[in-house]
Simulated assay, not measured.
Amino acid sequence: MLSFRPALRTDFERITTIYNQAIQHGNITADLVPETPQQRMVVLEEHLDNSHYPLLVLVDNSEVIGYGYLSTYNIRPGYQQTAEVSYYLDMAHRGQGLGTKILRRLLTIAQDQGFDNLVATTFSVNTASNHLLLKHGFALWGELPNIARNQHGDLLSQQLYGLYLK
């Protein structure tokens, strides 16, 4: 049975495994080297017990199979009404509509928190994520051509998607 709950420190090993799958895939994140749970903790620690920028895990029969979170888009005060949305799924659970479940939950939280906008960045080759964002009302707000390389040396263009919540 699927359920959401706030992430716990004890989830960081599983969260790291899922994130490392994205790194190994090569077209999902600009990180190039797998991380340790301690390295991911540095990134995710700010989301624990943070209702404004939560880190949620998607659980199936007590196994974390995905996660998502809202984060600060930009630290300057004028951007506080905008949050960035991020989500990751275990490779074995992709293509089953679970990304939709995670994104819908984060959209609800963002609206409840009173954010005006959500942004998400993807690579143009990440068609599954791009389609998911468009399906949920996000629009392509811009693209940075050939801005990053994956671990195979391929140049990737980053796309910025945005959604007005108000």
Rank of each mutant, 00 (worst) to 15 (best):
L8Y: 01
R9S: 04
N61A: 14
N130T: 03
Q24G: 02
L133I: 03
H47V: 13
M91F: 14
A22H: 06
G162F: 02
L89V: 06
L44T: 03
S51H: 12
N27P: 02
A110F: 08
W141E: 13
Q111Y: 04
G97Q: 07
V57W: 08
V64K: 00
T108D: 14
L140M: 14
G142A: 05
G153C: 07
R76N: 00
L144Q: 13
L144H: 13
S71M: 06
S157N: 09
F123M: 08
Q158P: 04
S51M: 12
T82V: 15
V59N: 05
R40F: 07
P6Q: 10
Y73W: 15
R76F: 11
G137D: 00
L144K: 14
G142L: 05
W141L: 12
D31I: 06
A7E: 06
E143H: 01
T17V: 11
I15K: 05
N61Q: 15
W141N: 11
L107H: 08
Y73E: 07
G114H: 08
L58S: 04
Q113L: 02
Y161C: 05
I28V: 15
S129C: 05
K166D: 14
A92D: 13
P54Q: 02
Q96V: 00
E63V: 15
A22Q: 06
M91E: 15
S86V: 00
N20Y: 03
I15E: 02
L134M: 15
R105M: 03
Y67G: 02
I23L: 02
L8S: 04
E45K: 12
T122F: 01
F12C: 11
D11N: 10
L156Y: 10
D116H: 15
V125I: 12
Q80A: 04
L160P: 06
H47P: 03
Q38I: 12
V125L: 08
L89E: 01
N117F: 11
G68Q: 06
V57R: 08
